[in-house]
């Protein structure tokens, strides 16, 4: 009896569109090839070898006369449920719940003035790109 009541309630809610759910996903750019990244050696690899191995970077900026090149990709997903109940002629009550997850990883390669790989960092984009918006150095 209880089961039938629950099913009937659920069906009623569904038919009157008082319950809705959504699942969204957004993928941007290409994941970095880890094996290619492993072939690079700090102090040994030059810019040409890095570009051959990893392709074109997503971002480039100046760092202390050298340069930083970033490769990253984003996989973002979110879902939500909304429950709406008419409470009068022009009044309704809504209850929503949602959650999201962002997988935004990448790598930044730092090059010296001779285009030799000086450092390599991996991690989340937000951390890796912290220094990106610095103003370029003044050229005398």
């Amino acid at each position: 009896m209880l089961r039938n009541t629950l099913l009937a309630s659920l069906a009623a809610c569904t038919l009157s569109s008082c319950l809705s759910a959504n699942f969204n996903r957004s993928k941007e750019l290409e994941a970095l090839a880890e094996p290619a990244l492993e072939t690079l050696e700090i102090g040994e690899s030059g810019l040409a070898a890095c570009l051959d191995a990893l392709g074109a970077p997503t971002r480039v900026w100046e760092v202390d006369g050298g340069a930083a090149l970033a490769w990253y990709w984003v996989d973002r997903s979110d879902w939500g449920v909304t429950f709406s109940v008419p409470a009068g002629d022009a009044v309704s009550a809504n209850l929503s719940y949602g959650d999201f997850a962002v997988d935004a990883e990448g790598a930044v390669l730092f090059f010296d003035q001779e285009w030799q790989l000086a450092a390599l960092r991996r991690g989340q984009i937000a951390e890796l790109l912290k220094e990106e918006r610095r103003r370029p150095a003044i050229v005398e």
Partner: peptide
């Protein structure tokens, strides 16, 4: 009452590096 949405973006991307004489290096 259920919606599924997906967006997939990829790029053709090229970086050309120049030296101080505006000649291509990489």
């Amino acid at each position: 009452v259920v919606g599924f949405f997906n967006s997939d973006s990829h790029q053709d991307r090229v970086w050309v590096f120049f030296d101080e004489n505006e000649s291509v290096t990489h």
